[in-house]
Design a protein around this nucleic acid. Structure first.
Lengths: 177, 177
DNA sequence: TTGCTCCTCACGTCACGTGAGGTGGC
DNA sequence: TTGCTCCTCACGTCACGTGAGGTGGC
């Protein structure tokens, strides 16, 4: 027979099972988002399994783009609401805004993926450029046929580089016309 | 007639045209990612249009999940490479890893969107629950038919709340069996 | 007693935000 | 001279990371 604490989790256990660092779990406590059910004699935090549900919930809301302080406010609103329909109104509002933002994020990432794909396609032709060009002088006016109208933005950015030496030169501007 | 500086952009102009804050632009300079082509007599930063290309490039790489320091390293590798094929190898490697990560991010966001949709569907039924339940007592054992097997994770997290009062109670654990 | 885990400060990091106090240029 | 913009520090923020120095419990 073991004491009643045999189903209690210590921070380390919870950390492993949740994938969060111990530091993160303590931060959630400080922000009033997650509390141990008890403390041991020695001051060790003791959790039960509901902590895992709570952590997964925090994780989902963070993925949705809420800051820990916003999650705090959402929880506060829930605690302060007197009945379910009232609580659900706030929550519904937050979630449907976040759904819209998530769809925008997906669209942005799909654009980024296309940009990366196009860039990789472009670079495939670079790999075998003969004779090998020197990036600083020749690349900006690359004569190679990359099969595209223009250079991808992810490649063009490399060329606009003033370098380190030129930075020291401080040209004096003409005074008048 | 105006002096040759008539096509120069000041930080404020560049900020407006790029959508970045002035603080961000100065940070990029500090990190060696973006430099003005010159300074005015009074010390004002003066840029040309290539700055916009560079900023768009930084922005894309940040969206792809690179930190400013990683962008710094990528630029460093480019500067140090002696020829184009060598430079492109590093760049290709970075970009194809980021493409994979972007696709994973899209998958995660699509899961999140489904989670949010399911949760909103669930909450639709809450809105009209009669008699209105009190969230703290009744919701965890909600008798309403929400048309789902189980509560969505985004709702379940609310219930696992020890609240503020209970926090003060520090139960003493039983010593033995 | 040895190991491993836990505790509480408290400072560091990253990509900026936000003043403070002062100057340039039409 | 008035306004607006620019300058350089330098501290604040957010979600943790990372020790320092000390203790619990099998």
């Amino acid at each position: 027979m073991r004491p009643a604490s045999h189903k209690h989790l210590k921070v380390g256990d919870l950390s492993r099972q949740s994938g969060k660092t111990v530091r993160a779990l303590r931060l959630y406590e400080e922000l009033d988002l997650l509390h141990p059910v008890a403390r041991s004699n020695g001051g060790f935090r003791l959790y039960d399994e509901s902590a895992l549900t709570r952590i997964r919930w925090i994780e989902l809301l963070q993925e949705a783009g809420l800051s820990l302080h916003q999650i705090q406010s959402l929880l506060q609103a829930w605690r302060e609401s007197r009945n379910a329909p009232e609580a659900m109104a706030t929550v519904r509002e937050t979630f449907s805004r976040k759904l819209a933002e998530t769809r925008e994020a997906i669209a942005r990432y799909e654009m980024l993926a296309r940009e990366l794909e196009g860039t990789l396609e472009y670079l495939r032709t670079c790999r075998a450029c003969r004779p090998p060009r020197t990036t600083k002088q020749d690349c900006p006016q690359c004569p190679e046929d990359h099969g595209m109208k223009q250079e991808p933005a992810l490649v063009a950015g490399f060329h606009t580089d003033p370098g380190r030496r030129e930075r020291i030169v401080l040209p004096v501007l003409p005074e008048g016309a």
